[in-house]
């Protein structure tokens, strides 16, 4: 576990960042356009939102008032990991956004968490990453939370 985590942290910077830049965050946008019932413009816009923000959470409700237990859960886990600011998108405000993000990631459920343009997972996965310490590592690698040394000062 430790070696996998260390390896992950070590390779994340170089490989993942380059890979994230080289290919779309999730599924190839061009391919999605033909399969999705959602407008290409919206998919493009969602893709841009994911890439332009350090952390994006597509959720039901807003962080202050989640309207689904799983959405509440990811907000709490991200907060507990030390994140104070992230982009939250309430999918209950738009059926098109709700369907669009599912199509874009080829992931049928919500919430969905993205870090530095990469799809991380829904509640189950974020919860497991939190427990294993991998979520902290991921956030630290991207300088989204203070390193342990700073945090203990």
């Amino acid at each position: 576990m430790l070696s996998r985590t260390a390896l992950f942290a070590a390779t994340l910077n170089r490989t993942a960042l380059r890979a994230a830049a080289a290919r779309p965050a999730v599924a190839p946008l061009m391919a999605m356009r033909s399969m999705s019932s959602v407008s290409p413009d919206l998919l493009q816009q969602l893709d841009k939102t994911i890439k332009d923000n350090d952390i994006v959470v597509f959720m039901k409700g807003v962080p202050e008032a989640p309207r689904c237990g799983f959405s509440r859960g990811v907000v709490q886990l991200i907060g507990a990991a030390g994140v104070s600011e992230f982009k939250a998108i309430d999918v209950l405000e738009s059926d098109e956004v709700r369907q669009g993000i599912k199509d874009l990631s080829s992931w049928p459920t919500l919430p969905q968490v993205y870090i530095k343009g990469e799809f991380v997972g829904g509640f189950d996965i974020v919860s497991q990453l939190y427990s294993s310490g991998e979520l902290h590592n991921m956030l630290r690698t991207h300088n989204l939370i203070p390193t342990e040394e700073k945090a203990s000062e």
Binding site: C68, P108, Q128
Partner: peptide, 29 residues
């Protein structure tokens, strides 16, 4: 983890696809 979830989502695609009559709205895995 993502690959495992995708595998299960694929197996249960019919149940999960709300646009095609699937009724499953949340699946904890």
């Amino acid at each position: 983890l993502i690959q495992r979830h995708r595998l299960i989502y694929g197996i249960l695609a019919e149940e999960l696809n709300e646009q095609q009559g699937g009724t499953v709205h949340a699946l904890t895995i």
